[in-house]
């Protein structure tokens, strides 16, 4: 993505996220399909004389409901991404934005065998920015952290106000090697956000953003 024009990079980001999210949705539908199929199988077996296990049926109904709720949450996240371009610049609640981001990136980090945990900010943090651009910046920070995070690892996303800025940290990556150190958000993107990116000695990556009104 680094060599593509900025407009293409935005489309590429949108494509990456929607590919990942729609794949996740397909998995929920596949599970619902199997639970429904098993319900039909058990009913058919009952019609052929097998005893009906009501507890199993109730359990399967609960399983279907759970997958519908989980799939609905994924759709909400996708809808959130679609609406992130509605306004060029607006006041963004960072805690809500991070919740949306973690929801959108869940499959992407799981595919690499890494769990991403969000620590909600201890206080409300407001930014004046374009939500879509902020999500892109977060995505590229995550890619930078994942490049240096072993499979089976855990990344923790934290946010706090520090030195008059919003400071986002992704902890859990190992100190990066020469190839991994090159993985960082694009300069044009950081410029659009008015942000600075750094990789700490312990491997964690950090994004600092101006607060609303700063």
């Amino acid at each position: 993505m680094a060599d593509a024009p900025e407009c293409s990079q935005e489309l590429a980001f949108f494509g990456q996220v929607t590919a990942s999210v729609t794949h996740e949705l397909k998995n929920y539908l596949a599970l619902i399909n199997e639970y429904n199929g098993l319900l039909c199988d058990l009913v058919m077996a009952h019609e052929m004389g097998r005893e009906l296990d009501l507890g199993r049926l109730k359990s399967l109904c609960g399983d279907i409901k759970r997958q519908v709720v989980a799939g609905g949450a994924v759709l909400d996240h996708l809808n959130g991404l679609a609406h992130s371009v509605d306004q060029q610049v607006r006041t963004v609640d960072l805690g809500r934005c991070l919740g949306l981001f973690v929801g959108l990136s869940r499959r992407s980090d799981a595919r690499q065998g890494v769990e991403l945990e969000l620590m909600p900010p201890p206080e409300a943090i407001s930014l004046r920015t374009q939500l879509f651009t902020l999500l892109r910046g977060l995505w590229q920070c995550l890619e930078a952290a994942l490049a240096a995070c072993p499979a089976g690892g855990r990344l923790t996303l934290e946010a706090a106000i520090e030195g008059g800025q919003a400071r986002l940290s992704l902890r859990g990556a190992t100190p990066a090697g020469p190839g991994q150190a090159a993985c960082a958000p694009a300069a044009a993107l950081l410029s659009a956000l008015g942000a600075s990116f750094s990789r700490q000695e312990d491997g964690s990556v950090r994004l600092c953003l101006p607060l609303d009104g700063a």
Binding site: N27, A30, L31, E34, G37, L38, D41, L42
Partner: peptide
């Protein structure tokens, strides 16, 4: 990698 998928499918095959 979806454990629920393989266990449910396994149950359906067993039937």
């Amino acid at each position: 990698d979806e454990e629920e998928l393989v266990t449910t499918l396994s149950e359906r095959l067993a039937l």
